[in-house]
Design a protein around this nucleic acid. Structure first.
Lengths: 243, 243
DNA sequence: AATTTTAAACGTCATAATTACGTTTGTTTT
DNA sequence: AAAACAAACGTAATTATGACGTTTAAAATT
């Protein structure tokens, strides 16, 4: 019953960041660069991940990885899939270790995604050489991490239509058009502004503030906030057949 | 980097079975019974699960477990969550092994759920002492398996509203009322028959057959089938904001 | 100070979907 | 032939959606 193979447990984190300025959904990736005497072995990007410590929960492990990468805690986090096929590799650290020892390793990774605002992350003197990439313009990606990113993205697209996680990617005070831009960026579709506006304003959990944008060079837009309290009250124990 | 703890990788399977006769959603559980010289140590029910073999994918492992339990293959399967907190135990086999050796084991389980019809499973002379339990009347459940079942159930409730997995739980030819009963069983709600009927019949992927029920003691109902082909054509690359 | 520019905000209308009910129909059983 | 009853059909008010046109308010320009 015991495995002769060495089993390695890790978490990998797909960090989604929305950039309000460029109106783009981005993924935070770190550089993987290995060279031997004469040739470059790998030169691509990968997700951040790490071994799960012995006395650490999976969730805590993901939270730790995010914190080391971005300095942030308390961001929206979702465990969305485990990847553990016998032939998969992952994570720069694992690879180095494999080269020193033997190749008889199986890495199971529990994949999480996070939602946050790019503006909340300071990438200056980041020890991982981390960089944001638009979800639609990913670079060369190592291991099976592109697959992981795309599965996270699919999950996000579905999730953002059924739960109000979108607001984790916006400032506390936002305009209707900012919400629309965000939906368009995530879903990759165009939405009619007038219909979207009407629909969103009619939601009881979208609350108009006594404030407008400042410092814009056109007519300043009305600011709104999202009320999680009202949302929760509305959706407790309600399911609707929408198929 | 290497773990002093022994890491154990397993799959656990939540097998949902719908019973058309009793109109109930059930979970297939196996008996866990261990007794020492004088006392009963455990006497409850657990999910089926097993260690993941060295050269086996996670999906294949779950498929194998289902086959050993039910004899069935090609049923709807979904990997929905990994459970791997450092203090968790699982699976009768693990426990026996732990008692013989030391307690320094961490079991990470990749949890799957399956959807099938209870009538497709023959529980006669089942080596696991397996039994169906209505989702709303679960027995005493061992380890953290009740949590796993409830999370699978939540996932199923959401999933059955956005994808046509419901038809995996029905015969190929079904009546409108059977579909309604199933939705009601899964979601735990009452649905207006007249509105439900109209809505379902209007779906292009619900096809009326030239057949009616036979051997019923009231007016026999019209039979319908679900067309996956038509469904796929309709929903390729379509997202709608329904929040 | 008036005009232009432009995003924000509002309006309309036809169609489709939903909710909440009442009524009829077609078998089987009595 | 009548009763029983689930199946199946119908209706009307309300709400949501999709596809557009129009107006407004502030800033920038003239």
């Amino acid at each position: 019953m015991k495995s002769e193979k060495i089993l390695n447990l890790s978490v990998d984190c797909v960090v989604f960041g929305y950039d309000t300025n460029t109106k783009s959904l981005n993924v935070l990736l770190i550089k993987r660069f290995l060279e031997s005497e004469k040739e470059i072995l790998v030169d691509d990007y990968v997700l951040t991940g790490y071994h799960v410590y012995n006395n650490e929960t999976l969730d805590d492990s993901a939270t730790r990885v995010l914190k080391e990468l971005t300095g942030l805690t308390n961001q929206y986090k979702k465990q969305f899939k485990a990847f553990g096929n016998p032939d998969r590799l992952t994570n720069p650290k694992d690879l180095i270790w494999i080269e020193n020892e033997e190749f008889n390793l199986r890495t199971v990774t529990i994949a999480y995604y996070f939602l946050l605002k790019t503006e909340d992350v300071d990438l200056k003197d980041n020890k991982f050489d981390a960089k944001w990439f638009p979800i639609n313009a990913l670079p060369e990606i190592g291991f099976d991490h592109e697959k992981i990113i795309l599965e996270a993205y699919e999950d996000l697209k579905v999730k953002c239509l059924s739960e109000p996680i979108i607001f984790k990617l916006l400032p506390d005070k936002f305009t209707i058009n900012e919400v629309q831009d965000l939906y368009q960026s995530i879903l990759g579709i165009e939405i009619d502004n007038r219909n979207f506006r009407r629909k969103l304003i009619n939601k009881k959990y979208i609350i108009a503030l006594d404030e407008k944008q400042v410092g814009v060079s056109k007519k300043p837009a009305q600011l709104y906030m999202f009320s999680m309290d009202i949302y929760n009250k509305m959706f407790s124990k309600n399911y609707l057949i929408s198929m």
